[in-house]
Amino acid sequence: MIDTFVIPLVKILVVLNATLVAVSYMVLLERKVIAWTQSRLGPMRVGPYGVLQPIADAIKLMIKEDITPVRADRWVFTLAPIISMVPALIVYAVIPFGPTVTIFGHAVPLYVTDINVGLLYIVSVASVGVYGIILAGYASNSKYPLLASLRASAQLISYEVAVTLTLVSVILMAGSLSMVSIVLAQEQARVWYGFVQPLAFGIFFIGSLAETNRAPFDMPEAEQELTGGFHTEYSGMRFALFFLAEYANMIVVSSVATTLFLGGWLRPFPNVAWLGVLDLIPGWIWFLVKSFVFLYIFIWVRATLPRYRYDQLMRLGWKVLIPLAILNLVATAIVKVWWLA
């Protein structure tokens, strides 16, 4: 009873709560880091050094007037942010934050569940988020959101091809779709896949910047040409859901990158025996540190690089990343079959 229902439920609640808190503090972190890059202070008013800013933001967004424009399709307009938000949250079900640990005599794996098609689940659930963006633009019935949502969906599906192709190379390496097995395969090979698959890692990183609508690919939110992007007409909590979904997706891609390419919960240099001291630090801390580095690079990139033009973005996706990903996949397959033969 406890192992079937209570522990999974507790884990899900912990993961969802941690995600939502992490997401709101991501917003603060981003504002702070960008402010420091530009020699500003960032939010300082709410609490010491602005640490309570996310709570203030949440309350503000909660009690704002929630406007539905007259021409909008009311139901779809409300549904779109929910369709955006839910996939971003439920992906966390298969992300392994750490190995199995023992708490009060119960062996508790530090992940919600380990299904044997974990990676496929992530890819398919993450693609559902595109519908939220298309429907938001369509339902708003306003020119800028519609244009922005078309651009966003074209961008997302273009980079999805390259990203999923790189994931196939990782599956070839690990021989499994389960996220936990992929980490265990890296433990067995005593190397992070980021080092054996540098090209796939690079394509995945660029692709994940584009998949999460982040600078330099934040075309859907290009303020100068499209006002607010696909959520121009949104306000209040429905707007906040789009925002939360974007940041939750950022944490998702960092966690997936950590799991697939940076060895998940493994310590750095799993091939160097005398660094075994590092194993004293629990795995989930390594996982969080690696994901955090990834998230920091996301913000750093946004603070540093100017935005791409749309034709440059599509050229990069279709004419550079996809051929490279196919090349990498074929090369990986040849090496793999050679190795096994």
């Binding site: 999974p8 439920l9 884990k11 899900i12 609640l13 969802l16 939502l20 967004l61 909660m62 009690i63 704002k64 007037e65 929630d66 409300t78 942010p81 929910i82 938000m85 839910v86 949250l89 439920i90 966390y92 079900a93 298969v94 919600v112 569940t113 299904i115 689940y121 209040g236 909590m237 429905r238 906040a240 859901l241």
Partner: peptide, 26 residues
């Protein structure tokens, strides 16, 4: 998969409740 179903239910619940709550509070 039971855990995933639970996760979907709770995730959708969060999104729905926050939208409803803001339409009541605003």
């Amino acid at each position: 998969w039971l855990s995933i179903l639970l996760m979907i239910a709770l995730g959708a619940g969060f999104a729905l409740v926050s939208v409803l709550l803001s339409s009541v509070l605003g």
